[in-house]
């Protein structure tokens, strides 16, 4: 297995922000659009879209790790699964830390309105960058 680990390491990003299940995050996703510059002439343009929501799961290991972000759009629950090391995921910013007691927050799917809120954690000494309470907003 060790040899495959070496291969996976080449696929992985060197820096991944410390984010956990229950956190509210901003995920920067790159989107390539085909735009019509002139008549009949198209150009590919890359732009960054931000997907904001609660991390409800992290799964997999190595370069195959993914995380699931859930948010409510126009009253409808939307979940997106991002490969953590995908070049399309440009950045992850932790907006709020959450206090949760399980690894997968699938129970949020059955809830709506105020019940979907996750208790905020003000300070976490186990987190990177958190030296003294109260911690400033964690940077992504």
């Amino acid at each position: 297995m060790r040899k495959l680990d070496d291969i996976e390491r080449t696929q992985m990003k060197s820096e991944i922000p410390d984010f956990r299940v229950g956190d509210t995050v901003d995920v920067s996703v790159s989107i390539v659009e085909t735009v019509e510059v002139k008549k009949g002439k198209t150009e590919e343009k890359e732009r960054i879209q931000i997907f904001n929501g609660t991390v409800i799961a992290r799964r997999g290991s190595g370069s195959r790790e993914t995380f699931t972000v859930r948010r409510i759009v126009a009253g409808e629950g939307v979940e997106r699964v991002f490969p953590l090391h995908s070049p399309k995921v440009k950045g992850i910013k932790v907006r709020r830390m959450g206090r949760v007691r399980r690894a997968k927050l699938y129970y949020l799917r059955d809830r709506s309105g105020k019940a979907t809120r996750v208790t905020e954690k003000i300070w976490d000494k186990t987190r990177a960058g958190a030296t003294e309470p109260p911690a400033p907003e964690t940077q992504g």
């Binding site: 297995m1 040899k3 495959l4 291969i7 996976e8 696929q11 790159s30 390539v32 190595g62 370069s63 195959r64 490969p83 090391h85 995908s86 070049p87 399309k88």
Partner: peptide
């Protein structure tokens, strides 16, 4: 056979690959 993993392309798509030591 060393096992299976995945590779990312520049476009961000994932290719499932088997790694062999040949």
């Amino acid at each position: 056979k060393l096992g299976m993993t995945q590779l990312f392309t520049e476009a961000g798509t994932v290719i499932p690959v088997t790694v062999l030591e040949v």
